[in-house]
Amino acid sequence: MTEITPDEQADYERDARQLALVDRIIGLEAQVAHLRSVNTSQALRDQLKEVKSSTTWKVGRLVLAPALALQRLLGRNADKDK
């Protein structure tokens, strides 16, 4: 084995810690960039579109349609009474 003095050993350990720290910093920068690349609002819009195109949503709209129509009608009359 190559002879290493205690002082040299301490230097190597410090250098190894510095390497790890630099790695963490670049890793964090990358993570930030990664998170930025995920367009959250677009993802939510896509999710909403998916929900609205589902059968469950369409059936629900159909079932609730009379109630919604009635609500709108009542609302309009209430406005008139004011």
Partner: peptide
Amino acid sequence: FIEVGGLSNLLPGNFNDVDLCMKVTW
């Protein structure tokens, strides 16, 4: 190699080279 922090010790067995290349091109 020093500038990019070497191989990440968070990756003891796999993808450490992928990570290194990514850091280098980054």
